[in-house]
Nucleic acid binder design. Structure first.
Lengths: 360, 360
DNA sequence: CTGAAAGCGCTTACAG
DNA sequence: CTGAAAGCGCTTACAG
């Protein structure tokens, strides 16, 4: 049973601190956690000794006794080759991670092939007490993860959800507003036939966007359709080809993300259609890529990092609440965050070279 | 002290399994961990009961008693806005994660602003026993992280390192070979003046590439220089402008990654230089982006996911070794992995539309 | 081949 | 205001 010391310097424990301070381990724990029931001088003395000794809690010990993992989980069910070209996720993860690490909470990241694998990951995290809560991204229209986390009692927030699903807090990504801005911009330029190359129809945010797209078109008296893709550039290229073979050719195309927009741009260039003289194109997601290609792409810009941070913050709150109502069988409270107010900054349409008046 | 039960189903412990099986907790632990010293029938019976009960180890408990976190750490010291456009990292993380999760090891991800913050993260992970080992990316020419992990006795592998640094295992990313292939391709096309827009000079792999670049040029009797950047597209654009203002204009430019290559392409197009008729360009990193832009970019393709998996595998081995030599004060063994054999697949140059013979 | 027990490093009601 | 003690759920030498 004697611990193998392992290489490297020794890590002090509360027992060491207690001994040096001449108090019990309990008092050290109280001081370290800011619990009441300790005189100010004693607390300060203990804190100073712990600081000086470079004490840090053994997270496993703390997790075991406090029933708190000190970690949140994020499983992403998109193939790596897709993730690799979507600037959205690194930004989102960065925002989540910043919020969490400011609170000393770790982020466990797992990439999985599909929703089934993601659910296995969620169950395993729960069973092993690896995480205190999870972030759910890419909500499906009918999403099997929601009943799973609800049944497990695993605190969860939906990142980018479209609206109330069960009782989980959700954070829509300004989808409606961003689509609206894009359509209004194009209509103002004189376009009346606007098509869209969309993401997977099974994603809830795609549905939200499609609804917003239809409504915005109708309000403006314009027409247009949305073609679903699997987010691959091949699918985006194929959809673009289909659109430009139509008669009449659409004068504007909206792409659900930047890489698809660039793929579409390539197809248009090969079809000898000039952008924006013949066809205007817009990306629903802004990135450096939009700035860098020629012509540069008009794109909807929003603060994805702040968005991730907000969702992470809500998850932390939820976890704290769940721990507070200890033993209460009931579930997370209904969303009490303002929907469509994900970050501090409102989305804005960055107008670049890829949009202009329609031909003729 | 009674645990708050918390919401959701109950999680069985080894005590539950032991009771149902009519054995001691120790025996259950032995059965579950495949330790010898248990009759086959007993082992099978225990396993069946655990399986049926859906038992999973409480990772905190296991970590505390076994002194193993069951997690590895990866801290990335690049600003999020840069990470967001580099397909390399998602692929790398995906490969690492796949290897780790196959062994039930979690990946802790942290994004930090600089190497100092990364070192704080490493120290904190070590002090809290959050991780059993770490992966070090973006090795600097003089890298302060190396002495830190060595002093702490924290198992670590260098992902993409250029060669032996201290005693840490390292995995070079085929840099020399990839640079060589590119230069040879361009020389074969007839280029004799090849410049390069490189990454930060402080990165060790940039240095490796620069050395390989010089050697390859010298071998071919060609000339050329490398301009360092901070990987931003602004810097890439500025470097490209500087190059095309030279006399004579280089006939070929190599970019250390794909986004910089696209930024360079934009500058060339605006300077009315045709690619590849006036200038050929090549990206040292392949991605969908290279396929999608017009002209499509010739790029060096290699299996980054396998690379990440290999490094993660080595780290796991290192951790096992360190645990095996328990108490031995000595350090990790000198690298015993084959350098420059990172993945199963060799890098290949994918020739696309952006390279051709020099003008004249 | 199996069991009883100590220990990992914390937290937290409970006495004093 | 402080201390002694139990407990979190595992692992692991040590007896039998």
């Amino acid at each position: 049973m004697p611990r193998r010391p392992g290489p490297g310097p020794r890590r002090p424990t509360i027992a060491d601190i207690a001994e040096r301070a001449g108090v019990s381990k309990g008092s050290v724990s109280y001081a370290l956690n800011g619990n009441p029931g300790l005189s100010e001088p004693t607390r300060r003395r203990i804190l100073a000794i712990a600081e000086e000794a470079g004490w840090r809690p053994n997270r496993a010990a703390r997790a075991l006794s406090a029933s708190r993992a000190g970690a949140c989980g994020l499983a992403v069910a998109r193939p790596a080759h897709l993730l690799a070209y979507d600037p959205f996720f690194p930004k989102l993860i960065s925002g989540i991670e910043a919020e969490l690490s400011a609170r000393q909470i770790a982020l466990m990241l797992q990439m999985v092939d599909d929703v089934e694998a993601e659910m296995r990951a969620l169950r395993r995290w729960w069973a092993e007490r690896r995480v205190d809560g999870v972030l759910l991204v890419d909500l499906r229209v009918v999403d099997p993860r929601v009943p799973v986390v609800e049944q497990l009692g695993l605190p969860a927030v939906i990142v980018g959800g479209p609206g109330p699903t069960g009782k989980l807090p959700y954070f829509p990504g300004h989808d409606t507003q961003r689509i609206r801005q894009i359509v209004e911009h194009l209509v103002r330029l004189g376009h009346c036939r606007i098509d869209r190359v969309a993401g997977p129809a099974a994603f809830a945010h795609t549905q939200t966007r499609t609804r917003a797209f239809r409504e915005a078109l109708a309000r403006a008296g314009a027409m247009g359709t949305a073609l679903s893709t699997d987010y691959t550039t091949q699918a985006a290229a194929a959809a673009t080809k289909k659109l430009v073979e139509r008669c009449p050719v659409p004068t504007a195309i909206v792409y659900d993300n930047d890489m698809m927009a660039v793929a579409g741009l390539g197809v248009l260039q090969e079809a000898s259609l000039a952008v924006p003289e013949d066809v205007s194109i817009v990306s629903l997601e802004d990135s450096i890529l939009c700035e860098v290609v020629r012509p540069s792409l008009t794109a909807s810009s929003w603060d994805v990092e702040a968005f991730g941070a907000t969702a992470a913050h809500a998850l932390v709150k939820l976890i704290d609440e769940a721990a507070g109502h200890h033993g209460v069988a009931g579930h997370h409270r209904v969303n009490d965050f303002t929907p469509d107010a994900a970050g501090p900054a409102e989305p804005t349409l960055v107008v670049r070279a890829s949009t202009g008046p329609p031909p003729g």
